[in-house]
Amino acid sequence: MRSNATRLALVGAATVTAVGVGRAVTRRRRRHQPQREDGWYVVRRAVTVDRPVAAVISFWTERERLDRALAEWATLEQIDGNRWRCVSRDPDTGATEWRAEITVTGPGRLRWQVTGGPEQQGTVELVPAPQGRGTEIRAELRYRSGPLRRALGLAAGDEPDLRLRDTLRRVKSLIECGQLIDTRRDPSGRSPAQERRTDEIRQRLTTGGRA
C-alpha cells in the first residue's frame, strides 16, 4: 500500500464512521448496555465491501469523491503527515458538533479520538475478505457516557451500535455503487402530517428502533 494513499483512505473511512456515530454518542438512548472494558463502552461492527483493499483505499484517496461523500456531514483538514482533523457539523443547522483527531497507526489501520466533545475513540481496520469477496472494514468504537448526557436528547435510532452499523452500510454503498439510496421525498398521497409520521417509521427502518 502506498503510504499516503493508505492514510487518506483510512482517514476517509474513519471520518465517515466517526461522524456517523459521534452524534449518536452525544444523544444516545440507553436501551441495553453494550460491553464494557476498562470503563469504556465498546462496540465492534464490520461490513464487507465487494472491492479489493486497494480499491477501497483508492475510493477514499480521491479527494473530490471523499468530500462529496462527506458533504453534509463533516470537513476534513490535514494537520501533519499522520494526523487529520475532522469537524462534524449538524446537517440541519450547520453548527459544529464536535472535532476528532485521526491518526494513522499502521498499514490498513487508524485510530481516532474525539476532542472537545463526547468522550469517544475508535479504530478502523481494512482486512481482505476470504474467497476474493472484497474487503472487510472492521470498526471498533469506544465511548464513555455520563449520567447527565444519558438523560438528555434521547432520540430514537441514536444507539451508537446501530449508528455504527448504519454508517458502515453507507460507506459500503458509496464504494460499491457511488450513492446512497434515499426514498424519503418520493411522491406519495400523504398529507404533510402523515409524511412526518412516515418519516419516523423510515428512520426506525433505517437505523433500528432498539438494540
Binding site: 465487494d50 452500510r169 439510496i181 426514498t183 423510515r202 426506525r204 433505517t206
Partner: peptide
C-alpha cells in the same frame, strides 16, 4: 448484482432493519 443475483442486492433497500 455482480453475480446476477439482483433480487439480493445489498444496497437497494435503504430501510433494511425490518
Amino acid at each position: 448484482c455482480r453475480t446476477e443475483q439482483y433480487s439480493l442486492c445489498d444496497n437497494s433497500n435503504p430501510q433494511p432493519v425490518f
